[in-house]
Design a protein around this nucleic acid. Structure first.
Lengths: 113, 113
DNA sequence: ACTAGTATATAGTATTGCTAAGTAGTTTGT
DNA sequence: ACAAACTACTTAGCAATACTATATACTAGT
């Protein structure tokens, strides 16, 4: 499908938070997980800008570990603030998506008349 | 709740398209409908920039009519391109929201383990 | 040596919703 | 007559975010 770019704004960071919350992971792996999930257009650069932002906002703890397959990896884990952020994200998502779906179904109902 | 700003990016235009598709309407009314729907932070300026964009991209037909309560209203109706755009929007929304919810529920399942 | 895969980083761009302010017509209260 | 409130449209400028493109570097296979 076409460009989801704008629709991903505001939710991609939440997705990254969610993925990190499942357990220690690093940028490259997060990218792959997002692509597996279906967001095939997500590239490394995008994820790195997000992880950088998470660092800057102190939502994650960082640990650098060597890799057998390439350069050292930067592992992230959510700290307490990060977990709160994630919770807020899901609340927002719940609200927004329910409203959008309300708008959608309301019209489908009207269309049947 | 806090700022939904980023999360609204990419969906607000779709909402406006949807509202217009229900029947001829104008900017001020669209704003009110969005606010009634729950997007209380949406203000006129935001909607007008969207309707301007719709005009520019030729997704709407325009008809100016007098109002008994104020200045003349600019009524919008979706043209064929607009309807296609709306359809694409809902397809995108269906895809993205299902993926996000997949990510959400997958984790909830894991949390139960 | 070369290529591919793994891994991090960053400068620059486009899009988009919001802020803030202005212009104008109508109605209501004083 | 005047002000305030509501209706209605418009625009300049801002902030946030995801993407593009590119650079760097380590490892393994050919």
């Amino acid at each position: 499908m076409e460009n989801f770019r704008e629709m991903m704004k505001g939710v991609l960071e939440g997705c990254v938070l969610e993925i990190i919350s499942r357990g220690e992971t690093y940028g490259y792996e997060i990218t792959q997980q997002l692509r597996e999930l279906g967001f095939t257009d997500v590239v490394e650069g995008t994820v790195y800008t997000i992880t950088m932002r998470l660092e800057k906002n102190n939502l994650v703890d960082i640990e650098k570990k060597p890799s057998t397959k390439g350069p050292p990896r930067k592992f992230y884990t959510l700290n307490e603030v990060g977990h709160e952020h994630l919770k807020t994200f899901w609340n927002k998502w719940e609200f927004v998506s329910s409203k959008i779906n309300e708008l959608k179904t309301k019209t489908e109902k009207e269309k049947r008349i």
